[in-house]
Write a protein that binds this DNA or RNA. Structure first.
Length: 560
RNA sequence: UGGCCUAUGGUGUAAUUGGUAACACAGCUGAUUUUGGUUCAGUCGUUCAAGGUUCGAGUCCUUGUAGGCCAACCA
C-alpha cells in the first residue's frame, strides 16, 4: 500500500480523532444511503468512493441503504440501477438495507414519543402550519392541536396508520420548540399520510416517515458509526441528534452525522430533478445517454470504474463550495485508457488516397503494435493496398512548416506502413478534394530495417485500406452545456445553456480487426481519441461512442 | 436584517494540528517519439481584508468582507 504518505481529509481526521478518544475500530461502520428516485450520478460516485473507501481503509462494513420513505417518487427500477452502478464501480456492501424495513421500529418509537408527550397529531392544513412556522427571524406559534391528550394522539396515529384518513388531513409532529432559531426544530413532521403503492411494503402502510425521522434512526438501527451527508443537511444535524437522544441506549454506538460539500462538475448538472427533466423532455435519449453525468451514462460513454474512482480520490473531500473542471475527469480516463486500450486505426472523415506506383490488386498484411504501453508487445495484422482513406484534415495542398501532415510535394509516414509523397489531387466541381494521388517509397516499410525505413519524416498519419475497411457509426459528443455552471444562474434556466451540437453522428471506416467487437470494448483510435462499442451495436452495424479525445497540442496551436 | 457553514495559485485538495505553503490538473518551454498521444525535464502562479496573541500564524482571537445553506406533508 502506498497510502501511508497520503494526507487525511477532514472526514478521516474526525474518525482518527474518535479512534484516539477510545472509539473501537471494530465499531466503525458506514453507509451509502441513496433515495431510489433516480439514477446515480458523478456526485454520488464521490460519496460512494468516500464511504466505501473508508470501509476499505478501516476494514469496516459499509451498508447500501435505500432511503425509500417516499413512495410517490421511488421505483424498483432505480433500486436495480443503483445496485448495478455501485457494483460496477467495484464496491461490495455488507448489507443491503431499506429504510422501509424499519417502518415497524419507527412506528413503535413514535408511539412512545406520544406517550412521553414528545409528539402530537396535528390536523391543520399544510398552509396553516406553514403560517405558524414563522420565519428565520420571527419565532413560530403553537398549533392549536399541540396539547392534544395522549390518548387522542394515540388513537389518531393508529387510525392514520390504518388508512382511515385522507392524505393531508393529519400529520404526526415532534414537540420540540416553535421558537428555535433552527427552523427544522419548530415541531418537525415525523409522519405524513400517503396512500400509494410502495415498491417494497406494497400497501401495508398509509403513513410514511419523513427523512429526518427515518434517517438517524436507521443509522442507529444499523449501528452506523459515522453518517456522512452533504452540506445542505448541516442544519438537520440538530434534529438528527434530537431524535437520537430520545431512543439512544448508552450501550450502543451512537451515530455521528458530519457534512461535506457536494462536488460540482463544470459544464454539467447533478440535480436529480434536472437530470430527470433532460430525460423526460428528450434533450438526451435516456438516463444512460453518454452525455449524461450519470454513472450509467459515463459507463456507456466509455469511462472505466478505475478512472472514476481515481477522479474521486483526486478531487478529495472538503467543506467549501467547488466547481471542478471537467478536464480533470477527462484526464483521469485518458490516464487509465492509455494503459488499457488497444490502439487501432479508424478514419472518421475520409478522403481517398491512391498510391499510383503501388501495384493494382496487391495487398499486404502489415504488423501493428497493439499498445506501445504494453510491457510485452503484442501485434496484429493490418491490410495495406493501393487505395486508402486518410482524414480529410490531414491533407492540405499548401501549408507552412508547422503542418506536419500531408501536403503537395511533401512526405509523410503512414503508420505501420510506408512513406508516401503527395503528387497531385483531384477535385469535384465544388472544389472539394475527392482523391489525392501519391507515390510511395518501396523500401520504407515499417520495421523492415532498411535504411529507407529508418528515414525520419515529420508526420505520421493513420489510415485504413479502402478495400478492407469496415464502415461503422461513430457518435461524437461535446459537452451538454455551454456554460461552466448551468444551474447556478438565478435569472436563467439551465436549459438555456444546452449545447445544441452536443451530439454529432458520423460514418467512419475502421480497420478489419474491429469486425467482431463487443459492447463495452474500448479502443484508442490512433491520433483521434478513445472510443468504446455502444450497446446499439448489432450484427450488421457497429456503433462507437467517443469517450474523449487525445490531448491535442496541434488543435491548440491551430486555434491561436 | 435570526441561525448555521465556508474562505489557500486559473481549478481541486494538502500542510506533521502554532514551525520553510505543497501535490495533481490546466497553462507555458524544451527533449524524446513511426500517435502533434505517451514519457521526461523545466517553468508560471497561492493563504479574503484589517487588527491582535506569539520568538513565530494559512492554522488561535476580534472585527469586517464575500459566498453558500435554512421557512416542502422532498431527500
Amino acid at each position: 500500500m502506498s497510502e501511508e504518505k497520503k494526507s487525511l481529509n477532514f472526514i478521516e481526521h474526525i474518525i482518527e480523532e474518535d479512534l484516539r478518544n477510545g472509539f473501537s475500530t471494530d465499531h466503525l461502520r458506514f453507509r451509502f444511503p441513496p433515495e431510489p428516485n433516480g439514477y446515480l450520478h458523478i456526485g454520488h460516485a464521490s460519496s460512494i468512493c468516500l464511504n466505501f473507501g473508508l470501509g476499505l481503509k478501516y476494514d469496516a462494513p459499509v451498508n447500501l441503504r435505500f432511503d425509500d420513505t417516499n413512495p410517490e417518487k421511488e421505483e424498483q427500477e432505480y433500486v436495480d440501477a443503483i445496485k448495478r452502478d455501485v457494483e460496477w464501480l467495484g464496491f461490495k456492501w455488507a448489507h443491503e438495507c431499506y429504510a422501509s424495513d424499519y417502518f415497524p421500529d419507527l412506528y413503535k418509537w413514535a408511539v412512545e414519543f406520544i406517550k412521553a408527550g414528545k409528539a402530537y397529531v396535528d390536523s391543520q392544513s399544510s398552509d396553516e402550519m406553514a403560517k405558524q412556522k414563522g420565519t428565520p427571524t420571527v419565532p413560530g406559534t403553537d398549533s392549536p392541536f399541540r396539547n392534544r391528550s395522549v390518548d387522542e394522539n394515540l388513537d389518531l396515529l393508529e387510525r392514520m396508520k390504518n388508512g382511515e384518513f385522507e392524505a393531508g388531513s393529519h400529520v404526526l409532529r415532534a414537540k420540540i420548540d416553535m421558537a428555535s432559531s433552527n427552523m427544522l426544530m419548530r415541531d418537525p413532521i415525523m409522519y405524513r399520510i400517503i396512500h400509494k403503492y410502495h415498491h417494497r411494503t406494497a400497501n401495508n402502510w398509509c403513513i410514511y416517515p419523513m427523512y429526518d425521522w427515518a434517517h438517524g434512526e436507521s443509522d442507529y438501527l444499523e449501528q452506523v458509526s459515522h453518517s456522512f451527508c452533504t452540506l445542505e443537511f448541516a442544519m438537520h444535524r440538530e434534529l438528527y441528534d434530537w431524535f437520537l437522544d430520545q431512543v439512544y441506549d448508552i450501550e450502543k454506538v451512537r451515530p455521528k452525522q458530519r457534512e461535506f460539500a457536494r462536488r460540482n462538475l463544470s459544464h454539467t448538472i447533478v440535480s436529480k430533478r434536472k437530470l430527470l427533466k433532460l430525460v423526460q423532455e428528450k434533450f438526451v435519449t435516456a438516463w444512460d445517454d453518454p452525455r449524461m453525468p450519470t454513472i450509467s451514462g459515463l459507463r456507456r460513454r466509455g469511462y472505466t470504474p478505475d478512472s472514476i474512482r481515481n477522479f474521486a480520490d483526486t478531487i478529495g473531500i472538503a467543506k467549501r463550495d467547488n466547481l471542478i473542471d471537467v478536464s480533470l475527469l477527462e484526464y483521469c480516463v485518458r490516464e487509465d485508457l492509455n494503459k488499457k486500450a488497444a490502439r487501432v486505426m479508424a478514419v472518421l472523415d475520409p478522403v481517398k488516397v491512391i498510391i499510383t506506383n503501388y501495384p493494382e490488386g496487391q495487398e499486404e498484411w502489415l504488423d501493428a503494435e497493439n499498445n506501445p504501453e504494453e510491457e510485452v508487445m503484442t501485434y496484429r495484422k493490418v491490410p495495406f493496398s493501393r487505395e486508402i482513406y486518410i482524414e480529410r484534415e490531414d491533407f492540405r495542398e499548401e501549408a507552412n512548416r508547422k503542418f506536419f501532415r500531408l501536403k503537395l510535394g511533401g512526405e509523410v509516414r503512414l503508420k505501420n506502413a510506408y512513406i508516401i509523397k503527395a503528387e497531385s489531387c483531384v477535385k469535384d466541381a465544388d472544389g472539394t478534394i475527392t482523391e489525392i494521388h501519391c507515390t510511395y517509397d518501396v523500401d520504407s516499410k515499417s520495421g523492415s530495417g532498411t535504411e529507407a525505413s529508418m528515414r525520419k519524416v515529420k508526420g505520421t498519419l493513420h489510415w485504413v485500406s479502402v478495400a478492407h475497411a469496415e464502415q461503422v457509426e461513430v457518435r461524437l459528443y461535446d459537452r451538454l452545456f455551454n456554460d461552466a455552471a448551468p444551474d447556478s444562474h438565478k435569472e436563467v434556466d439551465f436549459l438555456e445553456f444546452i449545447n445544441p451540437d452536443s451530439l454529432n453522428v458520423v460514418k467512419g471506416f475502421v480497420e478489419p480487426s474491429l469486425k467482431n467487437v463487443k459492447e463495452g470494448e474500448t479502443f484508442q483510435f490512433q491520433r483521434l481519441g478513445y472510443f468504446c462499442v455502444d450497446k446499439d451495436t448489432s450484427e450488421n452495424s457497429i456503433v462507437f461512442n467517443k469517450t474523449v479525445s487525445l490531448r491535442d497540442t496541434w488543435a491548440k496551436l491551430e486555434s491561436k
